[in-house]
Design a protein around this nucleic acid. Sequence first.
DNA 1: CTTTGATTGTCAGGACCTTGACAAAGCATG
DNA 2: CATGCTTTGTCAAGGTCCTGACAATCAAAG
Lengths: 145, 145
Amino acid sequence: MSQAPQVELDRSVGYILKRAQSALHNALEARLRSHGLSVSQYACLELLAQRPGLSQSELARGAFVTRQAMHQLAAGLQSAGLITSRDDGRARRLQLTAVGKRKLRAASRAAAAVEGEMLAGLDDAQRRALHDSLASCIDSLALDR
Amino acid sequence: MSQAPQVELDRSVGYILKRAQSALHNALEARLRSHGLSVSQYACLELLAQRPGLSQSELARGAFVTRQAMHQLAAGLQSAGLITSRDDGRARRLQLTAVGKRKLRAASRAAAAVEGEMLAGLDDAQRRALHDSLASCIDSLALDR
DNA sequence: CTTTGATTGTCAGGACCTTGACAAAGCATG
DNA sequence: CATGCTTTGTCAAGGTCCTGACAATCAAAG
């Protein structure tokens, strides 16, 4: 008389969410390698391109790492000549360099290709529903905070 | 005459997928802390409960870490008395102990609660659609391998 | 203005995971 | 049987990220 488990891996949305994110991360990592960028580095560049002037801490939150980790990450991107920084009060605002923008453009194409492959089996309505449902999940989890 | 970006963060399914997975991981981590388990450790126990006799390498793949990382992870769980191991050829098959099963039962309730909160805004049809769409994403990414 | 609280950047230390390498054990193809 | 390929477990070394801590800066309230 064994009772049914509270969590069934095959039906669990949380587990398949992790599986999907892992698959996407691996695919992205493989494609970005030829561009000399890690997934975290690419995320930094993409964020800075679309939200210029982000501070180090803001960038960290957008890239899902601590600001301490972003400290080293940004140092690496700066010494590679992909970004520049200017002090603004206590904040350290970051910007893409021309080299960074050029490198991002190629990496961004690769990333868009990966996302396109990932969504190949879904039509527009299904893609919108997927996006909306994930947004709902984020909102629900953010409530008790 | 700036051209539109290939990747728009706000519309990107990949980015919101990462955001959702990160939110889930954080929520799970917070809830499991009181049980003295990390997310990785919980994943190990849950996998072993539902697929008993998994080898160390198989468990590693299910928990999205390398087999080298699982080597240390399993050592920790064993020294904590939560799992046991028996050699089977080259494989090292793992099993939950009675203590491990008891600890998992409580942790599993907490995890199920988190998943319930995450899905609170979605009805059954939407949950099924979300699950199926994520499965489609995984399949599509697995093709070119 | 002063004081209190929150945010930011940074440094140091440690935890966790990864890559690389190796021997041992199956598996398969000849 | 014999040989090559794959998988598994393990060890060593390195990297990346995190937690904890601190001073500096800003914001808000008194």
